[in-house]
């Protein structure tokens, strides 16, 4: 095996990112939505620093760290899944995808625990601006995690049926790219909402 072919998952340069270009247009649109949301959060905070700083302390940092790790790990598993299919190993690809989905599930469980805690305290969207943003932003992201898991599951099913091969695996890349986007957004969301003060 030469050095070039050994670079699993990254064999050559190209003009286009891997995966269907349509998903990339969609990813950019999604990123735009989140980008606007982040900026609006920051500027709303500007007018209400004390309130934001005070209620930020009520968030569960441990949960946030677990979730960040869960998503990063999940993303990494997806990288492995892509590498596996590039070697034509469908079943290994499926296993990595299932592991990635499982990490997504960890995220959902932990996040639901946080929500349960907040809702148990009677907190809702109208409590104050901080909670409005916290709940809106994280819930919007939460929905994307679910969406990403559905996409990964669809890819996993097709891979399990042998629908992808070493040469034909655009679908895996497509699902992977979307999932990385979900991770990417959380990587900004986590410090912005939980830590920066």
């Amino acid at each position: 095996m030469t050095a070039t072919t050994a670079t699993i998952g990254c064999s050559s340069q190209s003009k286009y990112p891997s995966g269907d270009l349509a998903i990339w247009v969609f990813i950019l649109a999604e990123l735009l939505v989140f980008g606007i949301f982040f900026a609006v959060y920051a500027f709303a905070r500007m007018n209400n620093v004390e309130l934001f700083n005070e209620f930020q302390q009520h968030l569960d940092l441990n949960a946030a760290l677990i979730n960040t790790w869960a998503l990063i790990t999940s993303s990494y598993f997806v990288v492995r899944a892509v590498a596996a299919i590039k070697e034509g190993n469908s079943q290994l690809c499926v296993r990595w995808l299932l592991a990635a989905i499982a990490m997504g599930a960890v995220f959902l469980v932990v996040k639901s625990g946080e929500y349960a805690h907040h809702f148990g305290q009677g907190i809702n969207l109208s409590t104050n601006s901080f909670y409005m943003f916290y709940l809106s932003l994280t819930f919007f992201h939460f929905m994307h995690v679910i969406m990403g898991m559905v996409i990964l599951a669809a890819v996993a099913i097709k891979a399990h049926q042998g629908g992808y091969s070493a040469s034909d695996n655009t679908g895996v890349h497509t699902g992977a790219s979307y999932w990385h986007m979900v991770d990417l957004v959380w990587l900004i969301l986590f410090p912005l909402v939980y830590v920066m003060r």
Binding site: V25, A29, V33, I36, V40, A44, L125, S136
Partner: peptide, 22 residues
């Protein structure tokens, strides 16, 4: 309606031109 609609409505509807632009 509750105040959060000011934000939700503003942010999401600001994106409504995107599908039309596409």
């Amino acid at each position: 309606t509750p105040e959060y609609w000011q934000w939700w409505g503003s942010i999401f509807s600001a994106l409504e031109p995107i599908p039309f632009f596409m």
